[in-house]
């Protein structure tokens, strides 16, 4: 099961190739070494190395949707951030057909600004022109269905309300590769249905979805293929039902 899934038959081009990716990063432990030992030996600085991803390889074709599962700390989010290009890999290579858009719950935009301004700034930051944003902002705001709350500061929002703001920014440009990290898990049923429709639209337009979620039901709703990641390594990769079955047995 640890073999990469075979590339779909025919002439479907790849949108993503992850080959033998390792990701380590340094963290500061809660017990930092004293100043003296820090000067004496740089390695005694209280930092420790985390091997978050250890030799992961898989290919994803255009129009494919992949759900990534695994226990907390298995390296799922780290992998997604690396695919998005916001986290450097230690070794290996990640190739993409187009710039991936990452949508995560951790990514705060500007807390003190309103949801409306965050949508505006977010769209500008991903490279839309002010004219384009002016043209589309009413639609984007309407999609969130946040009503008057859209003019309240983002840090007064619940996580579900915030997810709506992130979602419209991440999908404003119909990305060819969309990466969703848990973000939809916090939405209510109504918004999940709406966002599912929008994601289906994106996949339909030769887009690719890579999704991390702890709800296996949610993953199966969105994705036809599953990847099970455990301690930074792929344990299973194949049709969603098979991988979910293997993952559930292990549980």
């Amino acid at each position: 099961m640890s073999e990469p899934a075979p590339v779909a038959e025919g002439h479907t081009p790849l949108s993503l190739r992850v080959s033998d990716v390792h990701i380590d990063y340094e963290v500061f432990g809660d017990r930092r070494a004293g100043l003296r030992s820090r000067f004496a030996d740089r390695n005694a600085s209280g930092r420790s190395l985390v091997h978050a991803v250890r030799g992961v390889s898989f290919d994803v074709t255009e129009g494919e949707s992949v759900g990534v599962m695994g226990s907390n700390g298995s390296g799922k989010s780290t992998l997604l951030a690396a695919i998005a290009g916001v986290l450097p890999v230690t070794s290996g290579e990640i190739l993409v057909a187009d710039e991936p858009k990452l949508m995560g719950v951790g990514g705060a935009l500007i807390g003190s600004a309103s949801g409306y301004r965050n949508i505006r700034l977010g769209c500008l930051a991903i490279g839309m022109s002010a004219d384009e944003v002016d043209e589309r902002i009413d639609d984007l705001v309407a999609f969130t269905e946040l009503g008057d709350a859209i003019h309240r500061p983002l840090n007064t929002y619940s996580s579900g309300m915030r997810a709506r703001v992130y979602f419209v920014v991440a999908t404003a440009l119909t990305p060819r590769i969309l990466l969703i990290d848990e973000a939809l898990a916090v939405g209510d049923r109504h918004f999940r249905r709406k966002s599912r429709e929008r994601i289906a639209e994106i996949i339909g337009a030769a887009g690719t979805l890579l999704m991390v979620n702890h709800s296996l039901g949610e993953l199966a709703n969105y994705c036809e293929r599953g990847i099970w990641l455990e301690q930074g390594e792929i344990r299973a990769d194949g049709p969603m039902d098979d991988v979910v079955a293997a993952y559930s047995v292990d549980d």
Partner: peptide, 24 residues
């Protein structure tokens, strides 16, 4: 199938970097 892929964190040329800045 992998034709046309590029590294996700490809370094932009100085020119492309400045263009990306100008767009924003």
């Amino acid at each position: 199938p992998a034709a046309g892929l590029r590294p996700t964190d490809a370094t932009l040329s100085a020119r492309a970097y400045l263009q990306a800045l100008w767009r924003r």
